[in-house]
């Protein structure tokens, strides 16, 4: 295994609490809740309009869980970047890592790459497992809720595959889109530790205030900087497309949804963001290379 993969593995081991054990616990809790609902008979379901198949219920449930997992991932990733880039100092292990033949840039790059690959992959796996739980529930549900019609195993499996395909595409593109923000938090964390959490927001706001103070008349609402950040913070995908797909009677059109996802990405902006991420990580690594905090 290459040294870089070993460094990724190290990040996983260090942060497996948030990215492995916690999702696992959440899945167990969810499963227990569903099982207890069926066992105790505390199930209630109502809908409007024409009849709905079990797998349509699964579509809605799986997509809803997907949004919850995305929110969880975004939150823990933010705190991962605010924590991991400083953890070697905080854990007093900086000198140990510096005794290894790995550059500071390589170490920080491994943290960035881990935060954008294996750690989200863990949450994605949790999402897939949740989907299996939801699929099982939607197959059992018609037995206690006859209005759902007969269980539809092929339809549910197809729906699981379709939604998973759309979700992985969304995840990859969204992570690449938001990579510069995570890198920004990580770079700040290298120098300021957990203060990076407020500083990640305060610094752009201060720059924006400065911009407004010198160019208030001509700037768009809030100033050029805030306008740019607003545009850059919104991943260009209309979630109503997913909602419509989930609640329509037709099966989800994976190709169309992925096509919309890809077409909606501003690729030059995404590429610029990745370059920005690389630059801030390099600057952070130079800081880490030069500053031994315990002696500063």
């Amino acid at each position: 295994m290459s040294a870089f993969l070993i460094l990724l593995r190290r990040e996983f081991i260090e942060h497996r609490g948030a990215f492995f054990y916690a999702p696992l616990i959440l899945i167990v809790i969810l499963t227990l809740l569903i099982v207890s609902a069926f066992v105790s008979g505390h199930t209630q379901f109502s809908f409007y309009g024409a009849g709905i198949g079990g797998y349509r219920l699964f579509d809605a449930a799986f997509l809803g869980l997907g949004f919850l997992w995305w929110a969880y991932l975004f939150l823990v990733l933010f705190f991962y970047f605010a924590d991991a880039f400083n953890s070697d100092w905080r854990n007093n292990s900086m000198l140990f890592w510096k005794s290894m033949p790995q550059s500071d840039f390589r170490i920080l790059l491994s943290k960035l790459v881990a935060g954008l690959t294996i750690l989200p992959a863990m949450i994605f796996l949790a999402f897939l497992l949740t989907g299996i739980v939801a699929a099982a529930a939607s197959l059992v549900a018609p037995l206690v809720l006859p209005m759902l019609g007969a269980p539809d195993v092929p339809g549910t499996v197809t729906a699981w595959l379709n939604i998973s395909a759309v979700a992985v595409c969304y995840l990859v593109l969204a992570l690449l889109w938001y990579a510069p923000f995570f890198a920004w938090v990580g770079a700040l964390s290298t120098a300021f530790g957990r203060w990076s959490v407020p500083l990640a927001l305060v610094i752009p706001v201060l720059f924006s205030l400065f911009e407004n103070s010198i160019d208030f008349q001509n700037a768009p609402g809030g100033g050029y900087l805030l306008a740019f950040l607003r545009q850059r913070l919104s991943f260009n995908f209309d979630s109503r497309d997913l909602q419509e797909a989930a609640f329509s009677n037709a099966p989800i059109d994976v190709g169309a949804l992925i096509g919309k996802l890809v077409a909606g990405v501003n690729w030059p902006s995404l590429l610029g963001g990745l370059i920005f991420a690389g630059v801030v990580i390099y600057i952070a690594s130079e800081y880490r290379r030069r500053v031994l905090k315990s002696f500063a």
Binding site: R10, E14, W97
Partner: peptide, 26 residues
């Protein structure tokens, strides 16, 4: 090789993982 502080070993690892990790990067 150096030891600047014996307390600087990564505390979240078990000994076996530490050896695997160092073997992979050194």
């Amino acid at each position: 090789a150096f030891i600047s502080d014996v307390a600087s070993l990564p505390r979240f690892l078990v000994v076996r993982d530490l050896f695997r990790l160092v073997a992979g990067i050194h």
